[in-house]
Simulated assay, not measured.
Amino acid sequence: MAKPASDWLTRWGAIASDGSKGVMGAVDSRASKKQAERDAISECKSRGGVTCSIQLSYYNQCVVTIQGNRTANNTRAATIEEATSIGMQTCTSQGNSDCSVYYKACSLPVRSR
């Protein structure tokens, strides 16, 4: 007997920030892009941000925020390890030293049944 097909549901994440305040809000595993972005802005504001805006939205993948001594970057990829590798290369190529992972998360699809 054949198994019924599994349906996969997309999961979204987002990162918002207020650059003037140096505040970031991030969420993962939301059901929609709109929900992820709304929640990320809310999280940013709850941490003291005033003019929070979306820096990155992503779905069915992972993201890292790499912080250097001069700049930060958000990188998405299939895995945390891959995103970290790309983000660290970006950080050093931008002339930063002391690059490190500030935030990491995955919003991976979930089986609906």
Rank of each mutant, 00 (worst) to 15 (best):
S85A: 07
R70P: 02
A77P: 04
R38Q: 14
V23S: 09
V27C: 00
W8N: 12
M1N: 06
R38F: 12
V101F: 06
V110S: 15
V64R: 11
T79P: 02
A36R: 02
I54Q: 02
A78V: 11
Q55N: 11
R76W: 11
S85R: 06
L108M: 15
K21W: 00
A77N: 05
I86E: 13
I54R: 04
S53T: 14
G13D: 05
S107G: 10
Y103Q: 11
S53Q: 10
M24P: 02
A72H: 09
T79E: 05
D28S: 15
T90I: 06
G19K: 13
A72M: 09
G68W: 00
R47Y: 15
S46F: 09
A5Q: 12
A26P: 07
Y59N: 14
E37C: 00
P109N: 12
G13V: 01
P109L: 11
N73L: 06
G19I: 13
S100F: 10
C99A: 03
G68R: 00
I15F: 13
V27Y: 03
S112Q: 13
K21R: 05
A36L: 07
T65E: 13
I54A: 06
Q67Y: 12
S20L: 04
K3V: 03
G49I: 07
G22T: 08
Y58Q: 10
D18L: 07
G95A: 03
D18G: 07
A5F: 08
T65D: 04
T75M: 05
C44Q: 07
S85M: 05
A31Q: 15
R47Q: 06
N60I: 09
C52H: 00
I54Y: 02
S57C: 09
I66G: 03
Q35V: 11
S42G: 01
S53C: 03
V64D: 09
E37S: 03
C106Q: 01
T71G: 05
K45G: 05
R11L: 06
A2C: 00
K104M: 13
Y59Q: 14
A77D: 13
G48T: 07
G87M: 01
C44M: 05
A2V: 04
A36I: 02
S20I: 06
A31R: 12
T79I: 08
M88Y: 03
S20V: 04
C44I: 12
S29C: 11
G25W: 01
E81K: 10
A105C: 07
V27L: 01
A72S: 10
V27H: 01
V110P: 09
D18S: 06
G22C: 10
S32Q: 10
A83E: 02
E82N: 06
Y103V: 10
I66Q: 02
D98R: 15
V101H: 09
L9G: 15
R113V: 12
T79Y: 08
C106T: 02
I41R: 00
N74H: 14
V101L: 13
T51I: 14
T65N: 04
Y102P: 03
N73C: 09
Q35S: 15
T79N: 07
E82Q: 08
G19N: 11
V101C: 09
R47W: 11
N69H: 05
A36E: 03
Q67I: 10
